[in-house]
Design a protein around this nucleic acid. Structure first.
Lengths: 110, 110
DNA sequence: TCCTTTTATCGTAATATTGCGATCAATATG
DNA sequence: CATATTGATCGCAATATTACGATAAAAGGA
């Protein structure tokens, strides 16, 4: 079953995996794109934009919050969501240095 | 249950999600790091390096192959794996333009 | 030919993910 | 106070993921 102790991997590996897991579903990518575009959204805005039910959107928002990439602030009956700037920068840098680790024309097999 | 028709999302959204899903487990991040470092690896090299069984490594390699990020070539009894350059570049660019979509200090809520 | 090496695949089990409708809790509004 | 509105959570179902040992398949070597 799904053991895979966290201690078996480095912090960079688990951080990268965590950010990527947040982006591993097209609905969550779409939510983030909407937040990038509009800067802030309430949950209802996202529900209107996506082809999935409100409860499902809420669940995806919860996962995005847990990844750290977004945060939400209660404002009356609604919740205002936005990108978490410092986490976004951290993810950007982590991914950049990971993908930049590839040297062009260096793969000798295949 | 897990329906989520592909047609509901853009190609960019599903491509991004597919690449990120490949990176969504620390073992797969570790495999890619090893390939970046050593340029090529046979399956056994990776099994030696990771704290998981050979069959599990093989399964992760299969997922990475399906994402497009790596390819493998049979060489005698072993299989030589390496990064797929063109897919890697595509993923790099897709992720870069996604993360660059954030404007600093633009989040007004929270 | 027999045996070893290497990797993929099968079978199984545990857990996680995705999705929905229904409902709850909190705040507005009449 | 009654009643919307908004979003989170619960309960459930279907499917996917992760992991392992056992075994199969393919190629090389004695």
């Amino acid at each position: 079953m799904g053991a895979s102790k966290t201690a078996d991997y480095t912090l960079i590996q688990t951080d990268l995996a965590r950010y990527c897991k947040a982006l591993s579903h097209p609905a969550r990518v779409a939510i983030l794109q909407l937040l990038l575009e509009r800067k802030t959204c309430i949950c209802g805005d996202i529900v209107e934009d996506l082809p999935i039910a409100q409860s499902t959107v809420s669940q995806h928002l919860k996962e995005l919050k847990q990844s750290g990439l977004i945060k939400g602030e209660i404002d009356g009956t609604s919740v205002c969501y936005c990108i978490d700037e410092s986490e976004w920068i951290k993810a950007t840098q982590l991914l950049r240095s990971f993908f930049d680790g590839f040297e062009l024309n260096s793969n000798t097999c295949c």
